[in-house]
């Protein structure tokens, strides 16, 4: 059975439907990229997959014994209040909350893991700084480090590259590809179609037309060709 199976899923807010009849499945070790225009419902889909929102219709089935506390998540936006006192270290460590379950305190292993992930994202030097005093890109790296701490079997990323400089972006894609090689399933929303084509195994395109299949099928499909062309046009 697949890690995640989506059947006849419809997304929406209240009665307003955004996307209808989505059907796809994600297997263990897949690297799925979700692409589509602004407002096509990518973030809503990811929130529904994580059960943060109720689907309007349809089903989401978890297989392979995937538990919620084995999933890492990077939200597109975190509505952190302006005056929240929280140090970078505290936030990254909170990524381990799923690992420690009902145990009240983080153990040495979890603390080591959070230090390691801060080093990976190059934020060790401001471990004691206050989160809200960081730049947008630095904040994004903190949230990435937190997501990495939570990841054990799957990692869901909503536009991980937003706000990152080119060097860190490349490192991040490399890191995620590495995790994928270690067997971690990745689901990533991105507008960076070049990266999507370069790293992923599967692509889900949502919008007026829906496509789901392997990367090569996507590049051959009409919708994929059109989307690639529009992107190229935009870059010239």
């Amino acid at each position: 059975m697949a890690l995640l199976t989506v059947r006849n899923l419809s997304l929406g807010y209240d009665s307003h439907i955004i996307a209808e009849n989505l059907n796809f499945s994600v297997n263990k070790g897949d690297y799925l990229c979700i692409v589509g225009e602004n407002g096509s419902g990518k973030t809503t889909l990811m929130k529904t997959l994580l059960n943060l929102r109720e689907p309007v219709r349809g089903q989401i089935l978890f297989g392979d014994g995937l538990k919620k506390n084995e999933i890492g998540y990077l939200p597109q936006q975190t509505a952190v209040q302006k005056d929240f006192p929280a140090s970078v270290r505290e936030i990254v460590l909170s990524g381990c909350q799923g690992r420690c379950g009902l145990r009240p305190f983080y153990n040495r292993e979890e603390k080591r893991l959070s230090e390691e992930n801060m080093a990976r994202m190059g934020i060790s030097e401001f471990a004691n700084r206050c989160y809200r005093e960081l730049s947008g890109g630095q904040q994004q790296r903190v949230l990435l480090a937190r997501a990495l701490c939570a990841t054990r079997k799957a990692l869901l990323l909503d536009e991980p590259a937003s706000g990152l400089d080119p060097k860190v972006t490349a490192e991040m894609y490399g890191l995620i590809a590495g995790l994928n090689r270690e067997g971690i399933t990745i689901i990533m929303i991105t507008h960076d179609i070049a990266a999507a084509v370069r790293y992923t195994t599967h692509i889900l395109h949502i919008g007026a037309a829906v496509f789901c299949g392997t990367r090569d099928e996507y590049l051959e499909s009409d919708i994929g060709k059109l989307f690639m062309m529009q992107k190229k046009g935009g870059e010239q």
Partner: peptide
């Protein structure tokens, strides 16, 4: 700090 993240990771 982040209720959505907590829910997403199973808290």
């Amino acid at each position: 700090f982040d209720e959505d993240f907590s829910k997403a990771v199973g808290t």
